[in-house]
Amino acid sequence: MILAQVVSDATAGDTGVGEAIVFWILGPVALAAAVAMIFARNAVHSALFLVMTMLSLAVLYMMQQAPFLGFVQIIVYTGAVMMLFLFVLMLVGRDSSDSVVEVLRGQRVAGALLGLAFALLLVAGVGRTMFAVPSVGLGNNAANGNLTGIGRLIFTDYLLPFELTSALLITAALGAMVLAFAQKKPKAKLGQRAAVVARLRGDRISPLPGPGVYATANSVAVPALLPDGSVAPESLSEIIEGHEVDEAPRPPSDAHSLTGRRRELEAGE
């Protein structure tokens, strides 16, 4: 495998030719995918472009003597985190693609200009000054010792941040539960016996009269009538009675007056 070759190539000092080839292939790919991500109209496409960037980065990590991170990037980031993104995207509506019209005036221009300025500053100010710096390389920590080295650091020098991340994860889990968990109304569940007892003890044993009984219409809006012709109060729907009902607007007898067409015609004549 060329990749394995490259990885072992990358020893202490400078980068080998193999690494350069990989970089010049994957680097532009990562960048292009990133740019594509912000231009893709469909959010799912954006997510997939991001996955592409992340995978490219994973390989670049491995080439930079960080095999462990490379795999974590693939498994955790690309595998889990991005899947979570996709899940939520599906939940909130996959087709909610952005409109291309920019509503904030000057936002894109300003964004682009600032982005350009920022990139220039980073590249010219920071990147340029680093070219002369020799790279030390990780030596034994690069390949087999990588995992142990990282583990050792986590449990010694970085013990506190490591413990703190547990607080972070607990918060995240709790937060997701609080916000995303739809609380059901707790209803007192009655057993069959209890239900019967409640019904017999209650003030009414028979079912409520349905709408339209002894009436001329079957609509919910029409109250049930008792045998003597009076309205059965239990059949009145609270919701319907609670609202003022406006008379439904009837179309005027002259249908043309709606469109105004006739007047035009008359005017034209």
């Binding site: 506190l160 941040p161 703190l164 607080a167 972070l168 918060t171 937060g175 609080v178 916000l179």
Partner: peptide, 21 residues
Amino acid sequence: LLTMFVALEVLSLPLYLMCGL
């Protein structure tokens, strides 16, 4: 700075959540 960053997140995440409640 790393501890600071992690602590920053530990303090921020609950606040983000609490704002929405």
